[in-house]
Design a protein around this nucleic acid. Sequence first.
DNA 1: TATATATATGTAGCCAACTACGTAACTTAA
DNA 2: TTAAGTTACGTAGTTGGCTACATATATATA
Lengths: 314, 314
Amino acid sequence: MDFLQDLGKVALGSRLRRLGEVFAVDAARLYEMYGVDIHPKWFPVFYLLSRQGECSITTMSKSIGCSHPVVSQVVKEMAKAGLIKTGKSSEDARVNVVKLSTAGKALIPNMEVQVQDVFEAMDVLLRQMRHDFWEALEEMESLLGERSFLERVVERRKLRESRQVEIVEYSDEYHEDFKRLNYEWIRHHFKVEREDYEILEDPHGKILEPGGAILLALYENAVVGTCALLKKDSKTFELVKMTVSTGMRGRSIGWKLGCAALEKARSLGAAKAVVESNTKLKPAISLYRKLGFERGTAQHSPYERCNIQMEINL
Amino acid sequence: MDFLQDLGKVALGSRLRRLGEVFAVDAARLYEMYGVDIHPKWFPVFYLLSRQGECSITTMSKSIGCSHPVVSQVVKEMAKAGLIKTGKSSEDARVNVVKLSTAGKALIPNMEVQVQDVFEAMDVLLRQMRHDFWEALEEMESLLGERSFLERVVERRKLRESRQVEIVEYSDEYHEDFKRLNYEWIRHHFKVEREDYEILEDPHGKILEPGGAILLALYENAVVGTCALLKKDSKTFELVKMTVSTGMRGRSIGWKLGCAALEKARSLGAAKAVVESNTKLKPAISLYRKLGFERGTAQHSPYERCNIQMEINL
DNA sequence: TATATATATGTAGCCAACTACGTAACTTAA
DNA sequence: TTAAGTTACGTAGTTGGCTACATATATATA
């Protein structure tokens, strides 16, 4: 058992299942003890029928919350044991109407006594606890209902990965990646324009030498995002070539790149930064807004694809 | 789902298991997502080996807390998948020393990242809760460790049954039951003596007519216990023929009979009641003590089997 | 030393859940 | 009214756990 201890909270699932098993084992003994001579797995069906009178297979599987083959199987077994009578419905020949036989009904009183005792024992047990186990269980179920555990883990993963993302300055070794990522996203959404080609093929001549900058996001030594600052005039830079590789989106890499770029612009003496985009690109617009950009006065853009201009005072 | 609602706390077991399942399903997706290309059920073995280096089958089954065939099976499957190397121990040719292969070890980094993320997600989830689910779980486990759920239900049952036990005065219709129960217990522990025979065959002449009384415990209209008051003198009664049927012990029936008998003695004007027994009969002695009897001065008893005399002032 | 018992493992088979798929019956739309 | 889709149910096969039993080896005891 040191193992569960060791794994601790990671093994909560197994732990819950195991605790459930403990109850199940005891339950099996109880049926015997109370003279309710049924297989434990029959109980849900039996109980349901004792309450509802008659049910179809599907109705039962839905209210019990298990697959219909299980119910079908159980009904077959119980019929063989003489506890159940089945028959076709007169209204819909597909449905199998199931009800308790006389022998089955004869078990009801014992079963009710058993349920009563089990209920009381559980009630006493729960009231004896310092923690409200029942409420805690409900809360856990409801939280997992809002967002599954899987989603929660994925979120942690993205967080961890984003922490491992590093922003670095451009150097020639990144030229291929810089081109690849940008051509990819442009081709995916629009088409490559003359301006794109010129910049991507000659980042040195078109961005760096005129006094701009290029930043790259690295994750595990691979380039997963790019962003550049184009110098417009002594006090103004334009944010361009901002992209994050498809597999790494949702990890705040755009945010990191954006922050780093604005920081860089400030250090280069900028008073204002602008960015052009397309209203189709919702996530991009929303990122720029989060970074502090606001819708600016529309100006002539060299790109066909741009229909919105945003700016920020630094 | 109305079913679980309806059954409420009675179905706690299923509910726990189901919640455990939810985690298990998500876990299965996670292995894939993290590139830990293993069957979910392999995880415990894999994790253990990644920590311990090498283990035997039994060691693993013990620390994981599952049966050894499962481990044996998993090891076979993992070996087939090339993740594990096995070999006989040099010290003990029975033990199968299991360790990760190079391919298996290659998965460790991914697995560790996964465990880390899962741990954090769980930690966040638990800290987000108003109730302390983790503590509640521990408390529940510890309570069930002290006394199993089965025992708790049995206790409720006894309580319920004892509430249904009724104490009535003797009448001739009970003669057979009175005799049967008493002969049974005497024969079981000792042997029937002349005195027993006389009283049991003629309760009217030996008990009632001299001014004594007989009380019976009824459960579902069946006699499940007896007790009589023998008049010794105007102020003293002796408690005799106190017995409870074997199947109904542990339901405080003796206590009920005893209380009723003392009450009856008082109403008959007694100032003192005595009882004779044998020190071998621990439960009987302890019952008398609980009723208020204290060890009295030993007197001559007509029964061979008696070696202790107790009395109480009413 | 011979024998009895304990231990480590593997094999076979059971069990209760599941999914996948086929069939029959009903419902809807052309 | 016919075709297409939906629903109810059963069957078959999978899975992950279990227990029971068989086998080989170790250890303890007469």
